[in-house]
Design a protein around this nucleic acid. Structure first.
Lengths: 196, 196, 196, 196
DNA sequence: CATGAATGAGCGTTCATTCAT
DNA sequence: AATGAATGAACGCTCATTCAT
């Protein structure tokens, strides 16, 4: 079972570095120190191993998102924390993250693919999380009350994606800076009273 | 020479619909009503035709960006126009646009590739355009004067990219809405006096 | 593993009959009753299978040359035996032999190619074998003492090659006759006292 | 008509350097500064240009051989002159020479090919020239009278070929030395009274 | 004489995948 | 769980050659 993990790890590295098509099953197997048939024994196809990687990353991201929900601070603080959580995720799983945002979309075209479904679900969850924050923030007079909730939420989600998609390997300084500016940018756009 | 154009057109459709690797030179040729060797006669390789497509899109985008430069309105109006220009571009060349933002990054890994160079140049031009607007806007008291110019510009450029990358085929209503909200979002974040 | 041998055998036949370029990997595979990818599984390229053939023939020739060394007769007898050994080799491995002398030189142009290296080594070994015989023959008064050892040896080696290179398929009567005459020719040229 | 000569010249260089198959018509045309169709206009095929080269070399060699015939010296001197004529030829037309001896045999397999016919004719002419010399030399007591005329002639012709086939580009010092030694070698083998 | 455009035929090679063991 | 041997299906690309002009 330890070889299965090795295969997943190696495959992740390759997919992030070279894309799905340019990575061959033979490369993965050789790098993992096993033979190709073993790869097909553990995952039933090349797509199979790719999907397993995608599933793992989504499971992880969702669980982090669930934790956020429980914090009961001001609404903007929740959004702020979302940005930082997103950044932590990138730092913890850089390859997976890059695969998900940059490799995945260009590979998979049929709408019913498991990856698409999960990605859509992720976007929806993120959007509804942010929508919730904005709605509540307006209600309690924290945010401008003329903000169009839904589309504004989508824009913030786009920003989160935009940060993830910066090309791998990531430069951490740059990411930190981008997150900070994004938060400031949103703060000015959303908050009724901002410190300036 | 007309067959060369046909090949470019057909290849663009395929690359946008199926990605680079899943498109075969034989498909392109057959769909263009010519034989494969002709493809290799006009473009020297599969990569060659891909690069020509990328070059064309960049040339077009750059020329549109140059036109914008000449308008002499308020700074925010310039940024606003940039958003609409970006949208027009997407509407005019949807496939090329999708290829550039979604297919290209996952294909090319070596930093000295001609596409990468051009893409970097595009980002730089966009960023410096927006930076210029913000700097000037701060100077003439149009924008908040505590805005961090450079990083804020980068975020706006990320938004422009984010709109382009929405998966092809594009839903125009959705794009329009996204652009409008983005503009509002930026307006609130940048402008000192906004109408609300 | 038996199919690998089959492939080598069939490839040898084709290379001898049609040359390297006019032989296709598909022909080889089909004639060997296997699929093309298997050829590339066992040998990594068309060149790979060619090189393996060359290596085999050289190994064989060298081992025959080593046996000769051990005979302790008169020096001219050693040279004579070299001619007959050379002929035996042609009879035992006619295709390999023709490939080595006639096909190989026209195919390979870069001096560091493994075949070139081995061919050079073969020429050197042959030349030094003959040089040794002549030197010793002069010393023990068997040969004319004014013979230029090195260049004479080279000429004899050229004769050995010349016999091998006669175009395949070989006519054995002709070869026998050529070898006999060559020996006589050399005998008259080298020996101090010849029976005539 | 000057471009036709250019094409022949360039083609000769390529065939000598890379062999027949590895030389492409496109390379030849490009190097000659013309387009491919012109090559096919002047020579009707790739084989056509190759054959023209072969024909030229043979015409040249035959005419040199004819000149030799007219000299009326001692028989060994005639053979000696043949060796030097052969060397002059190599010096004058090194590429053509290499093509004829090393490239040609491995390319052409059907016995009725024009090149084969000419090559056979060349060998026959050479052999009959040498045979004539030996016969006459025996008759006038210049050579050993027990020499087997025909096979000895063949061996001398093989030596002439062997010198030509030394790999291109030729080292002239080496060639000179080889010719000298060959002559000495033959002298000892043929002449009744030699100076030693 | 000269060319730009076009093609039929085929080639070496790769790759995901399977099967017998 | 693990592998060596084997394959179907294709793919990018090349090359000698032709045709219309």
């Amino acid at each position: 079972m330890y070889k299965k993990q090795k295969l997943l790890k190696v495959a992740t590295k390759f997919f992030a570095a070279k894309g799905f098509e340019k990575t061959t099953t033979s490369q993965i197997a050789k790098s993992a120190g096993v033979t190709e048939p073993l790869l097909f024994y553990h995952f039933k196809s090349k797509n199979g191993i790719f999907e397993e990687i995608i599933k793992n990353i989504l499971k992880d991201y969702f669980s982090r998102l669930d934790c956020l929900d429980q914090c009961t601070n001001s609404q903007f603080e929740k959004i702020e924390k979302l940005f930082w959580m997103n950044l932590d995720f990138i730092k913890d799983m850089p390859e997976e993250c890059y695969i998900f945002t940059a490799i995945c979309p260009s590979q998979i075209k049929n709408a019913d693919h498991i990856c698409i479904q999960n990605a859509v679900r992720l976007t929806q969850n993120l959007t509804s999380f942010v929508t919730g924050c904005i709605d509540e923030g307006i209600r309690n007079d924290e945010f401008h009350h003329h903000i169009r909730t839904k589309s504004t939420a989508k824009i913030i989600v786009k920003l989160l994606y935009g940060i993830m998609i910066s090309s791998y390997p990531y430069k951490l300084d740059y990411l930190n800076d981008t997150v900070e500016s994004s938060i400031e940018f949103c703060k000015r756009s959303l908050l009724k009273q901002h410190p300036d």
